[in-house]
Design a protein around this nucleic acid. Structure first.
Lengths: 345, 345
DNA sequence: CTGTTAGCGCATTCAG
DNA sequence: CTGAATGCGCTAACAG
């Protein structure tokens, strides 16, 4: 509450001027003798410099606003872990705001943060609208996006289309000709549009007879589970969930029906969540390193803040994690050796 | 970066004094006529009051420090969701610091936050040491703990011992006489000591012949998976993981060995994570409402800040979630009807 | 190398 | 009801 001891008292106790103490605190020319006196005085008083007074002068808050769509998701957790991993060592701290998956709230949060005097804002967006672009350009602090893309603003994200293509190419390689894509609304440009398009393109790519059905679900287990019947009705040889959660929900339904995976039907997903390795059979997936995305984003932000040149369009690496849930239709299915917890470590 | 327009310019444009503008902004006596002029001037200039100057005067930051052991965990995510849900409406924002599961880093973060001038600190602790108690008492801002308990400091947490007892009583009711508890280090008072003790007490509770073996694992899937062989060697009728993740890791191992659950062995856990409902068979567990814990903690903090009376020792409700992974040894095993995704909704 | 002098932008006395 | 004056605690010229 009350910040009792100030720089002034330290100065008096040490028998020097306030400026000398300030110099000691910062980058100062100060004789070793006085240096010692000041040090002692600070220790004795337990002095701590007042954050706000300091910021009022320096015009720097060392605070980065972070706007998240929600908190209780693995993805967001990883992202945050990455962000704080590079922000903290640089002396920055994060202020957190949650948008409850609402674009309106997201904008509100950004405005709020701008007003709070943070040095920059990182937004894990649910969708970058014209309003976002406007607000980004009008403000005088850098705003960096992730999760979604828009060429009018700086962003860092995984290449959803490439991820889709990776999966499409793999399933094709495995001899699948008919897939059903259990995806999300097209409102979500990243997951609902790009990822799906990449998949379809690579899966079909000039093959006659290759077919991809589509079933729309939400992002959570339950919603996917509820659509599973529709998904199975497509009679495809493989089910591709737009996220691992979707695949897991469908997998659950398949288990309940006593259908064997991958012998009778294959399942694959996107995300590389750890749980995908512990379900049985373990889920084949395209893994994203969200922690790395967080780190890159934070680094990008630091560059922006320091007016350093930034490397645009960073490529986020994707890992294909081949586990047990997809059958190779081209050659005999080679049974995974038990005892190895594939891809978990 | 640069906060161009200040209260002074607004005042000039409106033809009033700075103080009048300040009054307008806060709680001020101001004539309706000037009120309008000031409003217009603010709108025209796009004025935003300087956060730091304001805080320097008022001695309130409206910032709450939040210290977390890690970011990438479902538990932490839920907790944060709950916290921000009550903090935001109250006009507070959270500053986030991560301790990387280190007690030393945790203390460092607390000190850091104290210095930053936050109004209060919420700590999801890995263990409350004497040092924590000291630092809490010396500082002049409230520090509230969760995750662990210590009667010398304020805390809000779930009742781990009660959770353990709940599970012990249930398994006993199901006719189990020999359990193996796959738990974590006793360093963790909450999970490693209290939860286990509660379980053992209720499971045995004056029964002759009831037996509980113990195998130590880490918190993650993989570590549990690696200890699974030891766990199975106990030949117990039920495996109880100290957390759902532990149970899931062991479940995976059991699946790989082709052992049927719950026909041949039962498995149960603690936490109530959503994934427990999508694995097959769905995991019976004691569910904690971490979001509620977060909300309670935040409310407690608000009370502390306002010097309002606080309700000590809040009881966090526990939910027993009976799903499919535990066999009732007393009566015939009643097959779960397929088609209902138990406990997920 | 060091003390003195000015503000940073705002809220708040204090006289009107 | 309102303006002028003061200072929150600190940093950054400025002359020594």
């Amino acid at each position: 509450m009350d910040q009792k001891v100030t720089i002034k008292e330290v100065a008096e106790l040490a028998g020097v001027s306030k400026s000398t103490v300030s110099r000691y605190l910062n980058h100062g020319y100060i004789s070793t003798e006085k240096q010692e006196r000041v040090r002692a005085a600070i220790e004795q008083t337990g002095f701590q410099s007042n954050f706000f007074a300091k910021r009022l002068k320096t015009k720097e808050s060392k605070l980065i606003g972070i706007v998240l769509p929600r908190m209780d998701s693995v993805t967001v957790g990883k992202l945050l872990a990455g962000i704080s991993r590079v922000l903290e060592p640089a002396g920055y701290q994060g202020i957190l705001l949650v948008s409850q998956l609402s674009g309106r709230k997201e904008l509100e949060n950004i405005r709020n943060l701008q007003q709070q005097g943070v040095d920059g804002i990182l937004v894990d967006s649910v969708g970058i609208t014209e309003e976002h672009v406007k607000i980004s350009q009008e403000g005088n602090i850098p705003i960096l996006y992730t999760g979604q893309k828009n060429d009018k603003v700086p962003f860092v994200k995984i290449d959803d289309e490439a991820a889709g293509r990776m999966m499409g190419a793999y399933l094709r390689e495995m001899g699948h000709k008919h897939a059903v894509f259990a995806g999300v609304t097209e409102q979500d440009t990243a997951v609902g549009v790009d990822r799906k398009r990449g998949f379809i393109d690579a899966f079909k790519a000039g093959r006659f007879g290759a077919k991809v059905d589509f079933v729309e679900t939400g992002f959570d287990f339950l919603s996917a589970y509820n659509q599973a019947e529709d998904v199975l009705r497509c009679k495809a040889s493989v089910v591709v969930g737009a996220t691992d959660n979707i695949s897991l929900g469908i997998l659950r339904y398949i288990h309940e029906r006593g259908i064997r995976v991958p012998e009778e039907i294959s399942v694959a997903g996107f995300g590389g969540y750890e749980v995908g390795a512990v379900v049985y059979p373990a889920l084949t997936t395209v893994a994203f390193d969200y922690e790395l995305v967080g780190m890159k984003a934070a680094q990008y932000m630091l560059n922006l803040l320091r007016d350093e040149p930034v490397q645009e369009n960073m490529e986020m690496p994707l890992f294909f994690v081949e586990r047990e849930s997809v059958r190779n239709l081209k050659r005999d299915y080679e049974k995974e050796k038990p005892g190895s917890m594939n891809g978990l470590a």
